[in-house]
Write a protein that binds this DNA or RNA. Structure first.
Lengths: 204, 204
DNA sequence: TTGTTTTTTTACCACTTGGTAAATACACGA
DNA sequence: TCGTGTATTTACCAAGTGGTAAAAAAACAA
């Protein structure tokens, strides 16, 4: 009702916007915001530069759109951590989901890392309004689990930081890992290692 | 002998080169390579752009110089891990040194993270020639410690990755941590947390 | 088919940016 | 003080970049 008279996007619009965002994700995640040129995105998307600006008002809007989409994906695994489940099971499952995400969505992980590295100039508000409340809620949940003697007592905030850092490392520092563990198989032991680490730390 | 007739750099040269590198470290670590302009570096250094190009042949040379300096600093804590010491003590001390480095040299940590994130375009060779041999050597050392029953058996490569990721996280993702743990004190529990984590995991 | 709307291309432009040439100012030993 | 090499500034430039205007092409409804 109060929303303007927006017409539903055509098939072409849907397809091209999707192409552009996919191409932009490739480029932004590899070169960062400043390192990304519209020409690069245009090439990658198979469109001309002015044509891209027909679908998005500018470079910034493309970047912001990606960041908004990313936020949902990013929070999802943590949201799923269930207060009703078994604490150790829930936590290990969360670690696994985060590791799977680093493996399946390395571009998204690097896009996020780039943004935070540069001081979250475009994502700062999202962190405050979306991530912070969720973070506080889940820290409190973990705290109760520890009070109940279901988990060993450690600082839940640093626990979450360590889950994020260890899992995302496999996406963000892939170039380094490629040098140090060349021609490794798909299943390279990270899953088992992280499982052991968090199990040993959190077993009461 | 075979080295050319290089004159010793004057006091002014020493001072200005140092100023430039310090300014460049600020800018590169915050904005990445492409995001850094010579004008930004010049302003930060309090010199004019052409004056900067009097001391360095170009933007690339400044960046490479920083990266070379960084490599030494970066490898140092791992080099210090001593085969003759007590395994658990040595490992925990290494964790502590890395955490101190993230705290004391966040700019260097972010410079490194930026470079790796973008695929190590300028540092790749250094990783192969300097980091890889050291990494293999220390992995083998940790392996023997585990064989001797001094440490619980885990994959030493992933162990080192987890030390790197958890410690550097406090520098590289500082913008996020500032949101999630606002106005925290200097000593915020990270030291204690990491000590607990690695102790619990590695106690045989 | 035809008229209308949507999509794409062509040709630009203003600004930024890495870098250069040459003139000028400065430091310093004799 | 003067002369010489060092350091710095001024005035540029060519390439790259984000973005625009308007014409051309394609899609589509009638």
């Amino acid at each position: 009702m109060t929303t303007g008279p927006e017409k539903k996007p055509s098939r072409i619009q849907l397809r091209n916007r999707h192409r552009i965002l996919d191409a932009a994700l490739n480029v932004f995640s590899q070169h960062g915001y400043r390192g990304t040129t519209l020409d690069l995105v245009a090439n990658e998307a198979g469109l001309s530069k002015p044509n891209i600006l027909y679908y998005f008002s500018g470079k910034e809007e493309i970047h912001v759109t990606l960041l908004n989409q990313l936020m949902e994906t990013w929070l999802d695994p943590l949201i799923e951590m269930d207060a009703a489940g078994d604490p150790m099971t829930e936590l290990l499952a969360y670690v696994q989901r985060k590791l799977d995400m680093a493996r399946d969505l390395p571009r998204e992980s690097r896009l996020f890392a780039n943004e935070i590295l540069q001081g979250a100039p475009r994502m700062g508000p999202h962190l405050v309004s979306d991530l912070k409340p969720l973070f506080d809620e889940k820290c409190a949940l973990i705290e109760t689990w520890m009070q109940d003697g279901k988990l060993a007592k450690v600082d839940p905030r640093h626990l979450i930081f360590s889950i994020w850092s260890t899992t995302q490392h496999y996406a963000d520092f892939e170039a380094q890992i490629d040098v140090l563990m060349p021609k490794r198989p798909k299943e390279d032991g990270a899953t088992e290692y992280l499982r052991t680490m968090f199990t040993n730390m959190l077993t009461p």
